[in-house]
Design a protein around this nucleic acid. Structure first.
Lengths: 189, 189, 189, 189
DNA sequence: GACTAAGCGAGACGGTACGTCGGGTCTTACG
DNA sequence: CGTAAGACCCGACGTACCGTCTCGCTTAGTC
């Protein structure tokens, strides 16, 4: 009979340590100590450090915010609103480190990787909003909405990996370009 | 007096171990042993595991191939050719694992992150080719070529992180959409 | 209401494990599993590993034989007969290991120590037989029969602890010397 | 190149912990911590807890005293003098616990067992003194001096194992009986 | 003849120690 | 003086058992 209290304490400690110290530097012993739990109790229910992170991810314990996209105007405006929200988190102290840690975890652990998209919820949100846009005729009918989501998220990740100071304007440009309402800018030329 | 032989042996061993066993599982001791070198010799010249990887990266020792983009026709064709090359490497055994390892290294280590783009050379190549395309009027003058490169690379990375079977067709669609020669694909049709 | 079946299974399992794997390497969990019993059932009735052994000891479950001394001739002959029996057990496979395990248990656990002599029954038997011998005038009236028993048993234990190949002849010599019927060898001098 | 300082610290810590807490309760981690040493350094040079004890034993670190037997009068007097010394140690606080711990170690570990006699030095001392006595005609020419040593030591051990309050008088009686200067003590009376 | 209450098997729990791996620093001996 | 070798202290790994603690499930007596 599994102890709910232990489960809760472990996941909470995992999330806290992850945010505090990053994916590497995350130790089972540290989690166990902070959670006031024996190591065996962790190993009994999770096969690996990654599985812990994956569960925190799907529980929404790693990000204190959600990234829903509003549906209140033209796609472009809505997505820019969303982008600002995302960038705000990234610029907050520890924000980009958190993203990098998450990427590291996803890169090293299958379980985390498989839950990455659902975890950040970004692809899901984008997908939904872009699909609506396609239906509304704001985007071409053949726009590969899934891929566009990956591309935008991917661009953010690539920036974070590069340790460039997050280039908000560049990302906005990208979004504007990707979602340009009709004929490409300068089409009249 | 730095020993060139030692340097060479160390970097070669690092690259081999990285490809063979991934970024985590990469140990200084393992490298030292394989290189026939004392651990101290490594620590004397490189401050961290990441620095080793970073140097392998800029030396082009991690990927056996280069990803130059041809300039022989319409951008779209050239980029698709390049994409096929990239996907071939990714589908080869260990290919996606290698990419993930690289992403893990970049996510965990600043030095690697800062050299990531130059290392894979992808952004560089794309940037160059797309700039040409802009000049040739194939792409709108205000197309954010840097961001487009990041987006394409990012989409590939996001796929790899997700452990989805690399979706070649999706990526091709994305590229076609991003580089669609004129206004909204078929929107006027 | 104590379950007789559980008690029996536990003691049997304890004895078997003790003979099989020795005193250290003897685990409560192992006993519980072999006995098909919950750990709690053991802890409910015995305070410690040692108490289990002590009870096996007094139940005569650790040695498959008893070490009664015959009363059929001169003390010396009877004791030598007994000694042969003891040595036979000691030379049998696992015999000296069993004795060492028992000594270890007695050394580490008070309960076992207190029941050691009654457990092997050796001192008891020797005491009885030697007392008879004193009465019969075979031994001096002031012979310290208790101490003689301890000495003989002790000599056997010391040999076993030393991992010397059990020196049967030496022990026989000792016994002959201790129980030399009257005037010591060379008494006529 | 082995560190002499580490060796010394480890053996000292081992001896102290052994005297303080007994053989069981003796942990490698405890020794390492007290010695200010990494566990690996212990495992590098000693295969087991027992090997540590064995080395302390042969180094004479476990007993603060030596048990030489004087040669200054009749055997019996000399041995009684020696016995008093031994009993004094045994009666000192922790004395019998120390002996029991040593017996436990010898019983559970081959290395300790093989060095037991040389470690306490008791058998050696007794052997030497008794041999002299045989030469001097104080003991019969065929007295099994080795076995007599084992018997005396063994009797002491058996007493200690039994948790009887060490029966000094009994042991003195035993010694007097074993080494009675001529024929059966008082048999002619 | 249903109803407790104890004993039971099972096994999760917070811990301690195990023996191993690798990190990064150091010392030694050689070329 | 840089090097190969490797010992050193340390922190963490994943495992084994400890002794305590629920859990439901028998299984007796008792009402």
């Amino acid at each position: 009979m599994r102890s709910a209290a232990a489960r809760e304490a472990i996941l909470a400690a995992t999330a806290r340590q992850f945010q505090l110290r990053g994916y590497d530097n995350l130790t089972i012993e540290g989690i166990a100590k902070e959670a006031g739990v024996g190591k065996q109790t962790i190993y009994r229910w999770w096969p690996s450090r990654g599985a812990l992170i994956a569960e925190c991810l799907t529980d929404g314990r790693l990000f204190p915010v959600d990234f829903d996209i509003p549906v209140s105007g033209p796609v472009l405006d809505d997505v820019e609103t969303w982008l600002d929200r995302v960038l705000a988190v990234l610029h907050s102290p520890g924000g980009s480190g958190l993203l990098r840690s998450l990427v590291a975890a996803a890169a090293e652990d299958d379980a985390v990787g498989q839950h990455l998209s659902e975890g950040i919820g970004v692809e899901q949100s984008l997908h939904t909003r872009l699909t609506l846009a396609v239906r509304a005729g704001e985007l071409p009918a053949d726009a590969p909405v899934d891929q566009l989501g990956s591309a935008i998220l991917g661009a953010i990740i690539v920036q974070a990996l590069g340790r460039e100071e997050a280039d908000a304007e560049g990302l906005r440009e990208l979004v504007r370009f990707l979602l340009r309402p009709d004929g490409q800018a300068g089409s009249s030329a």
